[in-house]
Write a protein that binds this DNA or RNA. Structure first.
Length: 584
RNA sequence: CGGGCAGUAGCGCAGGGGCUAGCGCACUUGGUUCGGGACCAAGGGGUCGGCGGUUCAAAUCCGCCUUGCCCGACCA
């Protein structure tokens, strides 16, 4: 590609609002262009990188037996009504009516679509197992896109779906994906870790996320350095200390102004772990069948020394959504905010009790009377509820496996894998006849990779003060040929030769000053730069500089194509040597 | 959805009732220069986000709307 005729161009200054380096360089180098909030175009350079990433993804998915398909972005709402997600997903899913008034949606994922196809294809166990995948556009109307390609509304995703007759089959393909993902990310050059995760709106039980650890990430990951335990904070477990003792008589005491755990603990001169905190949320419970919505107050009880993890609470309460409760909703159930507990409360509410409360005794809890608390309250005797782990893990807490102190870090989710089970096959009647003649629901898994987000993470990982320096496997071109001569005829010849060797060349043939050419080359960050200038030309040489390391060598123009092919092979080998293989 | 900031040329910004709306970069033409964002000269490019109001006069003041960014809520 000649730079003189390239569609995009570079920017000297960063567009306002480009907050992180990777995003700034992608914009300035002309890889991408924003069109709206969370909506981007890929320009030629960006598109080439994305294409390379997709090709790596394809190879690895094919390697584990995936068959590539392409499903429609526009789905009839009917299939989303079948699974209930038409109702349970809120404004995040774009909806519209077609010309005859049929409800349509823009698919934000494709479990419904793929299950709809599969139920027509899979009738016998003989057809299983099957895995299909696609690389396709998703639209999720995120309330707050940010950080360039990290969190967008329209994005390209590789999503695959597996169909098995039993759990063992699911586990096999799940494990194959688990490893394939490590191979994909490492072939792209992106360091990442896998963490146990929540299944979110996908449903299902076992799930992992792939995280690129970076301060720009929005997810919090809890890790144990000692034993290797990792989990998203939303689901991270930790070892709690309990303080069982003999139950004492409940007793009401005056606690004026003690509306918070800190003030209560200091007023009574006790530790926070001797108190019981009540957190009020309102959960919405939506019927999958009718879409009818019901709100119900949820009282979450947790020991005063811990915080509630909303995600865990939502699961424990089986709520579709959670929001903080309004004061009236709390008082309506006979509880007094600041001095609240379920003791003596009435009305329709759900009480979820963290095991820290259930397994400790004689805690101080609200008396539902302004200025008063109870001493020595005990779960089971004074109040009831569903016991669950709803506590939020944080750094310093004990690892659930080995007890070592946990650490917390930020990460960007670049992929996820879910064991769906039969949630979609049952809802959509995707059954097969097994050897025993019985109809059984197909067991499914789904597996995603955010392609654009992967590029964004790579840009974040590979840059310096001058611009991008993407690894050769994902860089838009392998070689950047920079001619500094007034007359391009020698460079034209080199360009032709390199291309005939099958090398991907970006050719700087513009009439610009050397400074501009070098600055743009650094910004775009092609891994191998060939400089043709008078300095080396007098010896019949060109300079070859590696963007990654700055390492420079001279090569004769004679036979340059072969030399460069070797350079490319060396760069590629570095990456191949770093391929990560990991199995569950 | 709450809170904050912003929208003036492709990009970054200035101008804050008055005459032809400016600067840097980018762009065009001519000339000089030619290995790390050159120089000289002459040019081109604007519904000042939109609608309405106040005024003799609005980019400028007021109202509504809209779009983008940041923080939170939310989210893969």
């Amino acid at each position: 590609m000649r730079m003189s005729s390239m569609f995009s161009r570079t920017l000297r200054e960063a567009p306002a609002g480009a907050d992180c380096k990777g995003y700034e360089y992608l914009l300035r180098a002309g890889y991408i262009k924003q069109m709206g909030a969370g909506i981007f175009s890929l320009l030629p350079l960006g598109f080439r990188s994305i294409t390379k990433i997709q090709e790596i993804v394809r190879q690895e998915m094919n390697r584990i037996g995936g068959q590539e398909i392409l499903m429609p972005l526009v789905n009839p709402a009917d299939i989303w009504k079948e699974t209930g997600r038409y109702y349970s997903i809120d404004k995040e899913m774009a909806r519209f009516k077609d010309r005859v008034g049929r409800d349509m949606v823009l698919a934000m994922t494709h479990e419904e679509a793929v299950t709809d196809i599969a139920r027509g294809e899979i009738d016998s166990y003989k057809r299983l197992p099957l895995t299909v995948y696609q690389i396709q556009t998703k639209f999720r109307d995120d309330p707050r896109p940010r950080a360039g390609l990290i969190r967008v509304r329209e994005f390209t995703m590789k999503d695959s779906y597996s169909f098995d007759r039993d759990q063992a089959g699911l586990e096999k393909i799940y494990n194959e994906h688990y490893n394939a993902y490590f191979r994909i990310f490492s072939r792209c050059g992106l360091p990442c870790i896998s963490v146990a995760s929540d299944s979110g709106m996908m449903g299902g039980k076992i799930a992992h996320e792939y995280m690129y650890l970076s301060p720009i990430g929005e997810d919090t990951i809890i890790t144990c350095k000692k034993c290797g335990y990792t989990a998203n904070k939303q689901v991270a477990a930790f070892k709690k200390d309990y303080y069982p003792e003999d139950m004492k008589e409940i007793e009401k005491v005056e606690t004026p102004e003690a509306k918070t755990i800190e003030s209560l603990a200091s007023y009574l001169n006790i530790q926070p772990e001797k108190t019981c905190k009540a957190v009020f949320m309102v959960g919405s419970f939506i019927s999958d069948k009718t879409g009818e919505e019901e709100d119900k107050l949820i009282v979450a009880l947790i020991r005063g020394d811990m915080e509630v993890e909303e995600n865990k609470l939502q699961h424990a309460a089986r709520a579709n959504e959670l929001r903080p409760a309004h004061e009236e909703e709390i008082t309506a159930c006979g509880m007094v905010p600041g001095f609240a507990s379920p003791i003596g409360a009435k009305g329709n509410f759900i009480c979820i009790v963290d095991d820290s409360v259930a397994k400790s005794n004689n805690l101080v809890a609200g008396a539902n009377e302004a200025g008063y608390h109870f001493l020595n309250t005990n779960f089971g005797r004074d109040f009831q509820g569903t016991v669950a782990d709803i506590a939020s893990a944080k750094s310093g807490y004990k690892c659930p496996h080995c007890g070592a102190p946990l650490e917390s870090s930020k990460g960007v989710e670049i992929g996820n894998i879910f064991q769906l089970g039969t949630k979609y096959s049952e809802a959509m009647n995707c059954y097969f006849q097994d050897e025993d003649g019985k109809q059984k629901p197909v067991i499914m898994g789904c597996y995603g990779i955010g392609i654009g987000r992967l590029l964004a993470c790579l840009a974040e990982e590979y840059n310096d003060e001058n611009g991008l320096k993407l690894p050769i496997a994902v860089a838009p071109y392998q070689v950047h040929l920079v001619s500094l001569l007034k007359d391009n005829s020698i460079a034209d010849g080199i360009y032709e030769e390199l291309q005939s060797e099958g090398i991907e060349v970006l050719y700087e043939d513009r009439k610009e000053s050397a400074g501009v050419k070098f600055a743009d080359a650094d910004l775009i960050g092609i891994p191998i730069r060939i400089t043709l200038g008078n300095r080396s030309l007098k010896d019949g040489n060109v300079e070859v500089k590696l963007r990654g390391t700055g390492e420079t060598t001279s090569y004769s123009i004679e036979g340059l194509g072969k030399q460069i092919r070797q350079e490319i092979a060396k760069e590629q080998k570095k990456m191949d040597d770093a391929i990560v293989e990991k199995y569950l």
